Simulated assay, not measured.
Amino acid sequence: MTIINRHVVGFYVVLSLLAPRLIFAEDKRIALIAFFGQEGLDTLPIRNALPFHEGSIVSLEDNVSHAVDTANRWKQDVKDTVKRLIGREPTDVARVCCTKSGDLVVYIGLPGRSFRPIRYNEAPKGTARLPEILLSLDEQIDNLLFKAVLEGKAGEDDSEGYALAKDDPELRKKQLEFRDYARLNEGVIFRVVESSSDAKQRAIAATALGYLRQSDRQIAALVKASFDLDEEVRNNAVRALGVLASAKPGVARRMPAKRFISLLSSGIWSDRNKGLMLVFRLTQGRDPKLLRDLRSEALMPLVEAAQWETGHALGARVILGRIAVIDEAKLWGLAQEEPPDTILRAIGVKR
Rank of each mutant, 00 (worst) to 15 (best):
S56A: 12
L60V: 09
P117M: 10
L17T: 11
R179Y: 04
D228K: 06
L302S: 03
R129L: 10
L290A: 00
N5T: 08
G315P: 07
R202F: 03
F24W: 13
M277Y: 09
G348Q: 02
A298G: 06
D168I: 01
H66V: 03
K174H: 14
K147V: 03
D168G: 04
F178K: 09
R254P: 10
T127S: 14
L15R: 00
R113E: 14
R47S: 05
D271Q: 02
L344G: 12
E156Y: 04
S136Q: 09
S215H: 09
L32F: 01
R239Q: 03
E156C: 02
D62M: 12
G315M: 00
I118R: 11
Y107V: 00
G275Q: 14
I141N: 01
K330Y: 15
N236D: 01
V93T: 04
V243H: 06
S195D: 15
I204D: 01
R217F: 11
L299K: 07
Q175T: 03
A182N: 14
L263E: 12
D62R: 14
V93Y: 02
F11Q: 03
V238G: 09
S159G: 10
T127C: 02
E122V: 15
T99F: 04
E177M: 13
L85P: 09
R29K: 11
S270G: 08
D168Y: 06
D92I: 02
E26I: 00
I326T: 05
I261P: 02
E337M: 12
K289A: 14
S16A: 09
R254M: 13
D180I: 15
D228I: 03
S136H: 08
G87E: 12
D271G: 03
